[in-house]
């Protein structure tokens, strides 16, 4: 059979020489290697105190965005749900009533919006599909939970806080 790469290494099956039969030089070499590692940089990160930086393209937990006046941008068009390869997103649309203009930007809004974080593969297609810039992937990840239902994130988990309310507080 022809080798696929030129990195094939033939196994050395020559009988051991006297020095190799002594074992001790080889053992000593191995011990020198492990001793050297004592002084090398540790690969472990002490997690809660020290966090490994995310790469700039990291895709984490989703948020639902608001506009400058604190109105929800999402219009429940369903494009994100269509784009989602894992079918993690479900939503229900509702019509904006008069007097709710300060809450929702368009005439239609998402009455409920759920992402199942166990299904989500964090591909970011929803972010790309959204015509209203309403959904974004952040640089955090879903924390652990004791129950499966804890991983289904509703609107209250996803929506960012109202910038106007923040100012008053």
């Amino acid at each position: 059979m022809q080798a696929l790469t030129d990195r094939v290494k033939p196994v050395d099956r020559r009988p051991l020489t006297f020095m190799e039969k002594l074992y001790l030089p080889a053992i000593w070499k191995g011990m020198a290697i492990t001793f050297k590692h004592i002084f090398q940089k540790k690969a472990t990160v002490s997690y809660p105190e020290e966090k490994r930086p995310f790469s700039p393209v990291f895709r984490g937990l989703h948020i639902l965005n608001r506009d400058e006046e604190g109105r929800e941008r999402c219009t429940a068009c369903g494009l994100c749900a269509v784009a989602c390869p894992a079918e993690a997103i479900t939503m229900e649309a509702a019509e904006r009533k008069p007097g709710e203009e300060h809450l929702y930007r368009e005439e239609k809004y998402a009455a409920s919006y759920e992402i199942n974080m166990l299904r989500c593969i964090f591909c970011g297609f929803c972010e790309e599909a959204c015509p209203k810039d309403a959904i974004y992937l952040t640089e955090t990840f879903a924390p652990a939970n004791y129950q499966r239902k804890g991983f289904i994130y509703g609107k209250e988990d996803l929506l960012i806080p109202d910038p106007k309310e923040k100012q008053t507080v």
Binding site: H37, I38, Q40, K42, T44, S46
Partner: peptide, 10 residues
């Protein structure tokens, strides 16, 4: 731990 580039119990 230190031989394997880890930190060990701390």
């Amino acid at each position: 731990a230190v031989i394997q580039d880890r930190r060990g119990p701390n």
